[in-house]
């Protein structure tokens, strides 16, 4: 599927990716791995899940790091990274899921409200999504099946598959 969330011309944005620290248990990763196996796709070895906040703004990275650290992340159990483009990872398929245009993103709205109220930024948009790292000897067809049946509700969400690095 064509990547229409990441590449919108002239749109300046940052992605805040929030993931569990090693000492905290990635319960969703474990659950999704179990669910993938229940689909009959047995070659999956490991699944990790991150939350994505796509912050559409002209602001610099320093402000975004402050937003992530002070407002979005639970500093005890979570860590984060801020980027515009991510690198592919060896042995991992990467799937991103975002809402389609026009679908209400209530978590994004709440994040926007809390960022504006903090005074760090005045004008911005926030779109939330999920990122899945899937390790295993999988074919693209199988990853697509996982997305359609498990990770995305294609009525309201788009998914993007990035092959193994």
């Amino acid at each position: 599927m064509k990547n229409n969330v990441q590449v919108i011309m002239n749109e300046k944005f940052w992605i805040v990716e929030i993931f569990k620290k090693k000492e905290a248990f990635d319960v969703f990763g474990k659950e999704i791995k179990k669910n993938i196996k229940e689909l009959g796709i047995l070659n999956v070895e490991k699944v990790r899940v991150s939350n994505l906040y796509k912050i559409i703004t002209d602001a610099g990275k320093k402000n975004i790091v402050k937003i992530a650290r002070d407002l979005l992340v639970d500093n005890i159990s979570e860590d984060f990274k801020v980027y515009r483009k991510f690198k592919k990872i060896k042995n991992f398929w990467i799937v991103e899921v975002f809402f389609k245009e026009g679908v209400t993103d209530s978590v994004g709205e709440t994040a926007k409200k809390t960022i504006i109220e903090s005074g760090i930024l005045k004008k911005l948009e926030v779109k939330t999504g999920k990122k899945y790292y899937i390790k295993g000897n999988l074919k693209e067809k199988e990853v697509k099946e996982i997305c359609e049946k498990l990770l995305a509700n294609t009525l309201i969400q788009n998914y993007f598959i990035y092959p193994k690095g």
């Binding site: 002070d70 407002l71 979005l72 709440t110 809390t114 903090s118």
Partner: peptide
Amino acid sequence: SYGDDIGAGKVLANEIRLK
């Protein structure tokens, strides 16, 4: 509170700290 958006209690905790 606030639909548990971002994380349970996180938004209200921010609001208490900020306001």
